[in-house]
Amino acid sequence: MKHSIYQQLHLPYLEAALPQLLQEASTQQWTYETLLQRALATEVEGREQKAIARRLKAARLPSTKTLEGFDFSFQPSLSERRLRELADLSFVRTCTNIVFLGPPGTGKTHLSLALANRALTAGHSVLFTTLSELSHALSTASHPGLVRSRLRRYITPSVLVIDEVGYTTLSQEQARYFFELVTARYEHGSIILTSNTSFAGWGTLLGDEVLATALLDRLLHHAEVIAVNGRSYRMKERQTDRASVSAPSEAALSATSVVPTGVR
């Protein structure tokens, strides 16, 4: 079957949009130059949107978060200006790591996902994982070749998000794989990491103080460490939900204030 000129030139988005473009060109009396520019812009935009969708699928982000959706007023210890500066993505270009440290529920994952989403939109490759998932994937590989293949999966992206560091103590083998990954990405790609465990506790986490020191040396050499020590968003939401359930409605208050006729 003979392919159309659009298929031969690989212009699927222009082919789909051309009837509408021609109608607008006729109605608004575009010049040939304007029509050509709009046609090419349509194809470029279509390709960019497809590329973003492909990167988003590969990134495996559990949800879409933004800095605009983060309540900085609830975490006054955080510098909004600093996060906005990180959002310009210079950390990706310089292969700088970002480490969010703090107790559970304070917004560390939200911030890491917001920066990851910004990187995706700008055209960078991203992969999200938890330390538990990462460790399990590497330690269950059945042969060395599969280990190398899975390691490449985590080494390749421009930005690797490792969430929930500190929730699981690693085996000796898992700790070694974690060290190999951080070493492989050192000065070659950015890591965004969230942890509820201070660096002093990483020896226990990895089961090896010497290995933990060597890993942290590489992780923190080029890194922005951001402490998130405020209140828990989840506790805030739970308290709000409880308040809404326990608080009587306006209608109920009005009803209880009415005194029946003849009763004093």
Results as ranks from 00 to 15, higher is better:
W202E: 01
E237D: 08
A122P: 05
E164R: 09
P62N: 11
Q8W: 00
L22I: 05
I98A: 04
W202F: 06
A141R: 04
G207C: 08
S246C: 04
L67R: 09
H136Q: 08
E80T: 01
T261R: 14
L160N: 07
S257I: 08
V228M: 01
T197E: 10
K50W: 04
L40E: 00
A255I: 11
E250N: 08
L120S: 01
L11H: 00
H136C: 01
S112Y: 06
Q23L: 13
L113S: 07
S190K: 07
E173M: 12
R150E: 11
T94Q: 15
D241K: 15
Q37W: 04
I52L: 15
R238I: 10
A200Q: 14
T168K: 14
F91E: 01
L253W: 03
G102F: 03
S254I: 09
G145P: 02
A114G: 10
R118A: 13
V182Y: 08
S4T: 15
R47I: 14
L146E: 15
L11P: 01
I191E: 02
T106Q: 05
L101N: 11
T94W: 04
T169Y: 13
W202L: 10
T31S: 15
A137G: 00
P248S: 02
L120A: 01
I155H: 08
G201Q: 05
F70A: 06
N97Q: 05
T121S: 06
F128W: 15
A137Y: 00
K108M: 03
L205N: 08
R152C: 07
Q37E: 14
L36W: 04
A53G: 00
L40V: 09
L111Y: 05
P144H: 02
R81S: 11
T168M: 15
E164D: 15
P19A: 04
F178E: 11
D217H: 03
Q23M: 09
A243H: 14
S246Y: 08
H188C: 12
L151V: 12
D88E: 13
R176G: 13
L146D: 12
A53Y: 03
N196I: 05
E85D: 03
S139I: 12
G123F: 02
L21G: 02
A252S: 15
D217A: 05
I191T: 09
T129H: 10
T183K: 11
L134Y: 07
A17P: 01
N97S: 09
R81W: 03
D217F: 10
L9F: 05
D88V: 07
M1D: 14
L11W: 02
V99D: 06
R176D: 15
Y186Q: 04
E45M: 14
T109D: 11
R152F: 00
V225Y: 06
L131F: 03
A247S: 14
T31P: 02
A59H: 07
R185P: 12
R218A: 02
D217E: 15
F91L: 02
V210D: 00
T213G: 06
E48H: 13
H188T: 15
S77W: 00
R150D: 00
G262C: 03
P19Y: 04
Q49D: 06
S257L: 13
F72V: 07
A214P: 10
R153P: 08
S190F: 07
F128G: 12
L205T: 10
P19H: 04
L115G: 01
L86S: 05
A252Q: 13
S232L: 02
P260Q: 05
L111T: 09
R81Y: 03
L205I: 10
S125G: 08
V159Y: 08
V245F: 12
S198T: 14
T197N: 04
S249A: 04
S198A: 11
